[in-house]
Write a protein that binds this DNA or RNA. Sequence first.
DNA 1: CTGAAAGCGCTTACAG
DNA 2: CTGAAAGCGCTTACAG
Lengths: 341, 341
Amino acid sequence: MSEARATIYTVARAAGVSAQTVSRVLNGTGQVSARTRAAVLAAIEAQGYRPNAVGRSLRASRTPMIGMLVADVGNPFYARLHRAIERRLAGSGYSLMLMNCDDDARIEHRQLELLRSYRPTGLVIVPSVGSSLTDARLQEFGHVVSVSRVLGGVHVPAVVTDEADAVAAAASELVAYGHTGIAVILGPREASTTRAREQGFRTAVDSHPQARGLVRYTDGTRQGAQEAAEALLRAHPEVTGVIGFNALVTEGIVSALLTAGRRCPEDVSVIGFTDAGWMTLHRPAISVIDQPVEEMGALAGRLLLDMAAGQSVDPGPHVVPSTLVRRGSVAPPSMTKERRA
Amino acid sequence: MSEARATIYTVARAAGVSAQTVSRVLNGTGQVSARTRAAVLAAIEAQGYRPNAVGRSLRASRTPMIGMLVADVGNPFYARLHRAIERRLAGSGYSLMLMNCDDDARIEHRQLELLRSYRPTGLVIVPSVGSSLTDARLQEFGHVVSVSRVLGGVHVPAVVTDEADAVAAAASELVAYGHTGIAVILGPREASTTRAREQGFRTAVDSHPQARGLVRYTDGTRQGAQEAAEALLRAHPEVTGVIGFNALVTEGIVSALLTAGRRCPEDVSVIGFTDAGWMTLHRPAISVIDQPVEEMGALAGRLLLDMAAGQSVDPGPHVVPSTLVRRGSVAPPSMTKERRA
DNA sequence: CTGAAAGCGCTTACAG
DNA sequence: CTGAAAGCGCTTACAG
């Protein structure tokens, strides 16, 4: 009843046992007789006692918390990833702490420093562009899993999709439809995802002698992508098929088409990367490389939980394949001439 | 150099001072001579010492952490809100811990219990539907601000938009365009936002004798809204203007229109609530009640910071007005007949 | 099955 | 301007 600061000691006193025994009941460790347990539980109930995670963490030298650092929480990809990881962690006793770094290595450093001060159990990281994270540094966070972007020279399990193959399939799809001038609007040049997707694109283009491929780098935002796409379409009217790096970039491409007065798919075919709700609403519906975000998040969560439980895990990279979802935004380039005729 | 557990004590020893003085240097509290400060800083540098937030929190009986509990992190509104609050908190020393509750009072309770165990400094809450949160309970979280949804019988500063007026303006806009059968697809019946928006809708409809208003409740998801909109359009062909509760519901309405073969705006005019990137891409571009999410988040962050600094703040509710953004999804209903003719 | 003691890393009074 | 002591709430060895 006296809510005035219930601790393990006040509970112990009321139950006529030691603090140690209360701790045992709380954590289900060791052996406690049924009678003692009942007395402790009754005292906990009577006092409205609730554990203090801070005391526990200090003693244990670690906090049951998983940090999650991403480049941009405004990108729906990361929101979905966060949700998927949180779902996987639910009930495990670990909480997820989401942090943003605006894809800035300096902010990344600062955020990780803050996280580290809590002595977390693990970290899910989508490294920022230009990240200078090292193995030694990451070790400070206990168990680490990287998602989507991988970090060079660093040995942590990675969860990714089949970047290169997925983009190669999309590029080949455009070629199969008869496009010879195709382009991909990528993200930041230094991002591993950009490099992998570019490589897949080039591989596909190179395997089709009739095709010519163009590559553009952006900051991965809608605005940046729109500008890049507008410039590209202006300078290269022969481009009739464009692949977008992510959902935001795809928005930028579609927006650029609108601005430039180019119709989709009659004038330009479009394939996005990472599905988004609006893509089925758009006319034509946007064909997309559907990234299995939920599976990726669930896998990352599981790996972390396994590591935290002391199990050794496959360092991967764990590749969860994407699927090309065909909707209405890809058509033969010849349609242009037919319609114009 | 000896990275083997640098603490305030190892630093103190190396600098030839007491732990207390190291603490003073770390926190900038009290007076420390320049020489002493330099010696401490040198020792910190040499040992690679970094503070342990857990020890600090335990002693201080509170953690420099702000919890943020929302109904659905998958809703872009909350992602934007999170980002805005994090921005406002950046550099303040407080970290933001985002938690999801799937709009379930039970999960809300569990998540808050977890948060509370960290002894946070504050909480930003979008109460779940059916939340049984009380003043007493919320007091356990130190400083609390509610955003968007308000909680009955609870006295915490609230940050909201002008729900009723905004929806009333949208409904009047439809009537002004000549619509007489108008509808609003709302969220959960129990949510304060639903009630306020419904009230605004009814007020507007009642002030126009020629207008008839229909109201539907949903779970606020795209799927739920799509089903509700399909049923509504089927049962009430006289409805030619629809207002959506949020961006997801608006997706559902647009999707329902597509499924039902009703054109926008020729057959049905649409006004959304809360802007989203796809709305300017859609043809027609979707007119929307643009909710000032960033301002709301910044304000919530500031209120929390002020409260944490011991200042008393205006309990509000703090109303940040929305703006009706006219795009292409509203047209006179007469267009229907003209086109059909 | 249970307990007394120590200590996790830090800051808060209290002295000087 | 600086320090010795105590204690935040808990769990970890160590005993019995």
